[in-house]
């Protein structure tokens, strides 16, 4: 067990966190001051309104799966931010929203999020707590039940947003077989191909995290998106420097990025 109060081999991680945080805060501050910020079009998110509208027209519910991970997984938190926007629209259109959960802590958070969204949308009366419930912590037990919901309730729109494992394809294919319009998004790289083949729209990796800012257009969130882009530029520059130096046999620069 260590006696030191600082892990020197993690200094580069600390520098990375500090620089990135500073950049994010700078752009959030800029956004707060009212600077106009642009966001490029993301097809999967453009389709959210259409997907909710379709469910409303058909008089069928919307199914929202916030992933199968825990609340401490950032992908789940990103998904809950999107749930908030979807729930608000659904409440305004008076469309039923079903949110089955596999994690018992995600469930009360989903309830809080949807309840608040209904309130925000001016329709607290349409909030139905009984539609946001825990099923089981078992991965495939949950999948069996969600498959059942899809074929029996026949939702017009399915959202699969968050962290998914092998079950992604079972969910997406069952949903496709019921004719639902499907919007998926995950940062699980190995599951993305399955969502891409079986869903109408797929948010790839970072698009899931950008979704909240995109849908809300809140300046603070848009500011952080700008900060992310600037960091990508810096990363690109550093990688190129490392590549050039490595090409000439100088590995010292690349070695700075080794972490303990």
């Amino acid at each position: 067990m260590g006696q030191e109060w600082f892990s020197l081999d993690r200094l580069n991680v600390l520098i990375g966190v500090v620089v990135y945080t500073a950049l994010l805060l700078y752009f959030i501050y800029q956004a707060k001051k009212g600077k106009e910020l642009f966001v490029r079009k993301i097809a999967g998110l453009e389709a959210v309104d259409e997907a909710i509208g379709r469910a409303t027209e058909m008089g069928k519910p919307i199914l929202y799966i916030p992933g199968l991970s825990t609340i401490s997984d950032v992908a789940t938190l990103a998904s809950l931010n999107i749930l908030s926007k979807v729930a608000k629209k659904a409440a305004q259109y008076e469309t039923r929203l079903i949110v089955p959960c596999t994690d018992p802590i995600v469930m009360p958070v989903c309830q809080e999020v949807v309840k608040a969204a209904c309130l925000d949308g001016g329709r607290p009366d349409v909030y139905r707590e009984e539609d946001i419930y825990y099923i089981t912590y078992s991965q495939f037990g949950y999948v069996a039940a969600v498959d059942g919901i899809m074929v029996r309730e026949k939702p017009a729109t399915n959202f699969f947003l968050g962290m998914f494992w092998a079950e992604s394809l079972i969910l997406a294919e069952t949903g496709a077989s019921t004719g639902a319009i499907q919007i998926a998004g995950t940062d699980a790289i190995s599951q993305l191909p399955f969502f891409i083949t079986a869903c109408d729209y797929t948010l790839i990796g970072e698009e899931l995290y950008a979704a909240s800012a995109y849908l809300s257009r809140e300046p603070l969130s848009l500011g952080s998106l700008k900060g992310q882009d600037w960091t990508k530029l810096i990363i690109g520059g550093l990688v190129l420097t490392g590549v050039i130096l490595s090409t000439f046999g100088l590995r010292f620069f690349a070695n700075y990025f080794t972490t303990g």
């Binding site: 940062d187 993305l192 970072e206 950008a210």
Partner: peptide, 17 residues
């Protein structure tokens, strides 16, 4: 490419929370 982008998105979301 995806992992780096996701990493930035994750940290940004976690920070905002």
């Amino acid at each position: 490419g995806i992992v780096i982008g996701v990493g930035l998105g994750m940290i940004s979301t976690a920070l905002k929370i």
